[in-house]
């Protein structure tokens, strides 16, 4: 047994134990509700918790596989996310070539992460894809709807490929001196805090929610849910501070920052869905919707979090 000790005290293993504990508690609560409140339909809760088990196992499995597995994993998620987005777009026949190019940018963007070329990673989509997409559209020769196509495609790339790829780049950060934290553990911190905030916002909103934040965009988002979720998730972040190089108050401040930004990421995606007249992006994840319905908050929180860490915790060379 003693030979296992170093593995069990590894931050990723400790985090896996915490997540396992939460899922066991959630499943138990579901079981109790099923018995105590037989009059209500708990099938959505069941689907949601079931999907969390699968998503958590998958994510920890990929984390164990190392950085290269993570890069492939996030590239595939970006692929699926962009696919969900473009299916909603009113694309023109002339957009075909530019759409192919947009998908081609995914392996290229993740290749920069693979090689650790930060400078290229950070400008490839905002600069080079921004230049390349309209060039390809011009070659199609159709001017009607040109600006709309160029804008929507670039927007999709920024939100779902560029935004998500930050999560992946984070995982390649080296060990933070004087702590047990490294790139992978700060990704875990970010994903956990943002996702638990989503869940807690949902729970607080369902139980106490009265005053809507942005009623025309998302009637489910209430002030009670937002404040309750953000504060309780930030408090919980202290429990997993061992995943980060953060000081005590810094940890709370960063958690507040990413949960609030994450909230707005969710709101932005709600607005996108309303604009295109759909409820969910797809039906891949039972009880949750599409990949984008689950990752909307992370798309917004990841870049902010990456830059915070890079400015304050990565030594300048």
């Amino acid at each position: 047994m003693s030979s296992l000790a170093p593995y069990l005290s590894h931050p990723v293993a400790m985090m896996a134990a915490i997540v396992l504990g939460i899922l066991v508690v959630a499943s138990t609560v579901y079981g109790v509700l099923l018995v105590v409140r037989k009059d209500k339909d708990w099938s959505e809760l069941r689907a949601r918790i079931g999907a969390w088990w699968i998503m958590a196992s998958l994510f920890f499995g990929v984390l164990l596989g190392g950085n290269k597995a993570l890069i492939v994993f996030f590239a595939l998620i970006s692929f699926w996310a962009l696919k969900e987005f473009i299916t909603l777009l009113p694309t023109r026949p002339a957009d075909h070539g530019a759409l192919v190019l947009a998908f081609l940018s995914i392996p290229i963007q993740y290749y920069w992460i693979w090689t650790g070329w930060y400078g290229m990673f950070i400008i490839f989509i905002p600069v080079y894809m921004f230049l390349a997409l309209p060039i390809r559209l011009v070659l199609s020769g159709e001017t009607s709807g040109f600006v709309a196509s160029a804008s929507q495609l670039q927007w999709g790339l920024m939100a779902f490929v560029f935004g998500l790829s930050h999560l992946c780049y984070l995982s390649t950060f080296p060990d933070f001196a004087g702590t047990k934290a490294d790139g992978r553990t700060v990704v875990l911190f970010l994903v956990f805090v943002v996702e638990i905030s989503d869940v807690l916002q949902y729970i607080w909103g369902k139980t106490l929610g009265r005053h809507k934040v942005i009623p025309l965009v998302s009637p489910n988002k209430t002030w009670e849910g937002l404040v309750g979720g953000v504060i309780s998730a930030s408090a919980l972040s202290l429990v997993i501070r061992f995943l980060t190089p953060f000081a005590l108050w810094e940890c709370v401040a960063v958690a507040l920052l990413i949960t609030v930004v994450g909230f707005f990421g969710g709101a932005v995606m709600s607005a996108v869905k309303r604009d295109y007249g759909v409820k969910d992006f797809s039906s891949l994840i039972p009880g949750h919707g599409g990949v984008l319905d689950r990752l909307d908050s992370l798309c917004w929180a990841a870049p902010v979090f990456l830059h915070y860490i890079r400015y304050f915790h990565i030594p300048k060379t």
């Binding site: 299916t87 192919v100 998908f103 797809s282």
Partner: peptide, 14 residues
């Protein structure tokens, strides 16, 4: 939309 007439590379629309 995925593979229109004249195109040879499919775009992954659902």
């Amino acid at each position: 939309r995925s593979l229109p007439k004249g195109a040879w590379i499919p775009v992954p629309f659902f």
